[in-house]
Structures are given as structure tokens and as C-alpha cells.
């Protein structure tokens, strides 16, 4: 019994000794923990701020990446900026392209030297609009001048010529390049040659090549037939030369027969456009040519025909 009690007391004494030692260790650990806690708090604050900065930087990086992706990806055709890229052109550039279309040179390719991979739709659109209205205006002016020379002709404004001019010019300037572009792509697919021009570049070539017709149409107001044909031939030559010089590098790698036929068709269509404009909008010349001879040859018969003249004038 006494030995058991002695054993019990011994254990308690050892426990109390251990506890007495443990508080010291605890206090030292507390003091150690306190200073690290202070550092940790400062680190947490600075770490938080650094973390926030890192997050902000990451967000800005993500935004930059998204912007780059958006820039790389072409916007859809249903957005306005898609079409805005087609009008990304300056005044000096448009004037330079107009000058290039007026003065074609054999070694200078219109697409490589003037468009430089940045075709625009401003020139083709407004050149077609200008040509349509100038055609209609000069056509009416021709009738006015004819009326002054011959009072028997009754002039009334031919406003429908605006519609005819607009439709014909725009159809020519956009459908012919479409057909040409399709044909060149088909030939490229067959022979896998040099890359042909894009559709926009083809529209630019045709649109700017029509500019030379604007002064030609104005000069057609001069009522001298041989001068009119001269101006027509000159404008047609300049315009067709520009087209041929530009299309030749693409076509020459094809077979000679296809190249010759293609260029001939291009020039022929251009000639048809010029002839059609002249014969439709300036068609008052043939009646004038027909009118004088019968008057001169049949002066006595005019007296006899005088009762019928009012009847002929009435329906006109």
C-alpha cells in the first residue's frame, strides 16, 4: 500500500515538473509566434497588394489578348466596322489612284503600284455615281442645244435617263468584275498559277478605269461628230490600256489562246459600254442629219406638205 502511494506521488511530481517546463516553452513559442505573426501580417498586406496588382496585370493581359484576337479576327459582315474598312482611304490616295488610271504605263501595274493591298470602295462607288449623273445631264444638254439649232424639235426633260444611266453603269462596274474574278479563280483552280486579284481589287480596277469616261462625256457636248469619235476612241484606248496592263501579269501564265480571248472580251465589253452610252444618250444627231436633205431637195413640195406638218408635229 505504501509503495503504491509512493509510486502515485512520484508520477504527479514528474507531471508537475513537465508542466512547469512546458509554460516556459509556451511563452517562448508565443513570443516567437508573435514576431512571425507581425511579419506574416505585413506580408499578407503586401502580398495582398501584390496579388491584386498581379490580378490586375493578368486582367489587362487577358483584355489585350482579347483585343488582339478581335483585331486578328475580321468582324462579321453584319457589323458597321466591317464596311468601314473598305472606306479606309485618304484624299491623296484617291487622287493618286485616279491619276494612275488616267495615265496607264506598260510597266506599272495598277494593283501593285496604286492599290498596294488596300483596295477601297469609295472610288468605284462615287465614280459610278458621277458618271451616271454626268451622262444624264450631258444627254439632256445635247437635246437642249439641238433644240436651239432647230426650233422644230420640242425639248422636254428626259429625267428617266438618270435611271437608265445609273443601272447600266453600276451593273457594268460590278457584274463584269464579278464574272472576271470568277473566271480567273476558276482558271487558277485548273492550273494553280499565281494568285489572282481579289474581288475588291478587281472592282477597284474597273471602277477607277471608268473615271476617264467622265471628261469624255463632257467633251461629247461639242457638236462635231469626228471630234466626238476621236474623244471616244482616246478615252476607250486609255481605259482599255489600263485594264490590259493590269490584267496581263495574271493572264500571261495561262495558255496564249485563253489570254488572248480574255483580254479581247475585256476590251470589247469596254467598247460596247462606250458605244452604248454614245448611241443612247447622244442620239439626237441622226434626226438632224436626216432633216436638212429633204428640206433642201424638196423645197416646192414643202408648200404642198405644209398641211401635214402640223399633224406630224402633234404626235411628237
Amino acid at each position: 500500500m505504501a509503495s503504491a502511494d509512493e509510486l502515485t506521488f512520484h508520477e504527479f511530481e514528474e507531471a508537475t515538473n513537465l508542466l512547469a517546463d512546458t509554460p516556459d516553452a509556451a511563452t517562448t513559442s508565443r513570443s516567437d509566434q508573435l514576431t512571425p505573426q507581425g511579419h506574416v501580417a505585413v506580408a499578407v498586406g503586401s502580398g495582398g497588394s501584390y496579388g491584386a496588382e498581379d490580378e490586375v496585370e493578368e486582367e489587362s493581359d487577358k483584355a489585350a489578348l482579347l483585343q488582339e484576337q478581335q483585331q486578328q479576327q475580321q468582324p462579321g459582315f453584319w457589323t458597321f466596322s466591317y464596311y468601314q474598312s473598305f472606306f479606309d482611304v485618304d484624299t491623296s490616295q484617291v487622287l493618286d489612284r485616279i491619276k494612275g488610271s488616267l495615265l496607264p504605263r506598260p510597266g506599272h501595274n495598277f494593283v501593285r503600284h496604286h492599290l498596294r493591298n488596300r483596295p477601297d470602295l469609295y472610288g468605284p462607288f462615287w465614280i459610278c455615281a458621277t458618271l451616271a449623273f454626268v451622262l444624264a445631264v450631258t444627254g439632256n444638254l445635247t437635246l437642249v442645244l439641238a433644240q436651239r439649232r432647230d426650233p422644230s424639235i420640242h425639248y422636254s426633260p428626259q429625267f428617266h435617263k438618270v435611271t437608265v444611266a445609273g443601272i447600266s453603269i453600276y451593273c457594268y462596274a460590278w457584274l463584269v468584275p464579278l464574272a472576271l474574278w470568277g473566271f480567273l479563280r476558276w482558271r487558277k483552280g485548273v492550273q494553280e498559277r499565281m494568285g489572282p486579284y481579289t474581288f475588291l481589287e478587281t472592282v477597284c480596277i474597273y471602277g477607277y478605269s471608268l473615271f476617264v469616261f467622265i471628261p469624255m462625256v463632257v467633251l461629247w457636248l461639242i457638236p462635231v461628230p469626228w471630234l466626238q469619235w476621236l474623244f471616244g476612241a482616246l478615252a476607250l484606248g486609255l481605259s482599255a490600256a489600263g485594264l490590259v496592263f493590269t490584267l496581263w501579269p495574271v493572264v500571261r501564265e495561262d495558255t496564249r489562246l485563253v489570254a488572248t480571248v480574255l483580254l479581247s472580251v475585256v476590251v470589247l465589253l469596254h467598247a460596247l459600254l462606250a458605244m452604248g452610252c454614245k448611241l443612247y444618250f447622244f442620239q439626237s444627231l441622226p434626226p438632224e442629219n436626216v432633216a436638212p436633205p429633204p428640206q433642201i431637195t424638196s423645197l416646192p413640195s414643202n408648200i404642198a406638205l405644209s398641211p401635214t406638218l402640223p399633224q406630224s408635229l402633234a404626235p411628237s
Binding site: 482611304v89 485618304d90 484624299t91 491623296s92 484617291v94 469609295y122 462615287w126 455615281a129 458621277t130 449623273f133
Partner: peptide
């Protein structure tokens, strides 16, 4: 400024 003429011409027409 570099596109003023391009914008004024259609108004003229």
C-alpha cells in the same frame, strides 16, 4: 482633315 475632300465631294454631287 485628310478625308475632308472625300466627304465634301458627295455633298457637291
Amino acid at each position: 482633315p485628310n478625308r475632308r475632300a472625300l466627304a465634301v465631294y458627295p455633298v457637291f454631287l
